[in-house]
């Protein structure tokens, strides 16, 4: 492990008026590490994830990616430029895919590389082919999102994020909106990314997946990180009562 973490979240706090949704959270992620964030809804796990690319700005605290502070204070104009640059390094996948319905699969993937990386039509096309091949959907390149299943949509969304060659991928409940039989195909793509050494932070309700794939699991509740441990420790021998209660309830729900 290197001395300096790849992603470094320091004293992150966020509140909406009187309501505090994140309390002094510290999280360090090394390169190629995979971290899962679990917890009940309203625990702040999505808010924390969305703070990393400043989609939900923190009230206080710092977020760093390598040597660059993501949420640094700048005048509006400069900040816009800065954050657009930063976000090119951070891929994000959403619960509801957020594919662009007016563009084909090809259009969804090539849009950002063409606009932001000055790629030619041919280069961008080759890139789309590569990324779609990676998620096993090359035969759907000219389809519109409305013609795809949920699992296929999410795989295209992953390909779209990967086309920007990000240094880290954020997954915000990527399989929560999918029918149970479609979850596996998305999990497989994510496992393959893990094998390719991608750094990932994953907000999930899939305990089995977290256990199989992740290096570390954070359990959050009411804006606090209650417990943080390797998956085999956190899932088998959680030390905190709240973690135990949550896992018990969750496992009951699954069986």
């Amino acid at each position: 492990m290197s001395a300096k973490p790849f992603i470094d979240i320091r004293h992150a706090a966020k509140s909406f008026g009187m309501l505090e949704v994140l309390h002094d959270i510290n999280l360090q992620v090394d390169k190629s590490q995979i971290v899962a964030i679990i917890g009940p809804s309203g625990s702040g796990k999505s808010t924390l994830l969305r703070a990393i690319n400043d989609l939900d700005p923190l009230t206080s605290g710092e977020v760093w990616l390598e040597d660059m502070q993501i949420n640094k204070k700048l005048p509006t104009r400069l900040y816009e430029k800065h954050i657009n640059q930063v976000r090119q390094n951070i891929g994000m996948v959403f619960q509801h895919f957020n594919l662009f319905p007016h563009l084909t699969v090809r259009g969804n993937i090539t849009l950002a590389p063409k606009m932001l990386k000055d790629m030619s039509e041919d280069e961008a096309n080759a890139l789309a082919v590569d990324q779609l091949d990676r998620v096993g959907l090359l035969d759907r390149i000219d389809y519109y999102p409305s013609q795809l299943s949920g699992g296929q949509k999410q795989r295209v969304a992953i390909a779209r994020a990967l086309a920007m060659k990000p240094k880290v991928m954020l997954f915000d409940e990527a399989t929560s909106a999918l029918d149970p039989e479609l979850v596996e195909e998305v999990n497989l793509v994510m496992k393959q990314l893990a094998e390719d050494q991608m750094t990932m932070i994953i907000v999930t309700h899939e305990m089995g997946f977290a256990q199989d794939v992740c290096d570390r699991v954070l359990f959050m509740d009411q804006g606090y990180v209650v417990e943080e441990a390797a998956p085999e420790v956190l899932f088998r021998n959680p030390t905190q009562e709240r973690t135990q209660n949550f896992l018990r309830k969750h496992l009951q729900g699954q069986n």
């Binding site: 657009n84 640059q85 090119q88 959403f94 957020n98 662009f100 994020a161 920007m164």
Partner: peptide, 17 residues
């Protein structure tokens, strides 16, 4: 849908783009 805006902004597109 608000997710369309977020989806584009996370790719690095500016507000105007």
């Amino acid at each position: 849908d608000k997710g369309q805006y977020e989806g584009a902004r996370t790719l690095g597109l500016s507000q105007f783009q």
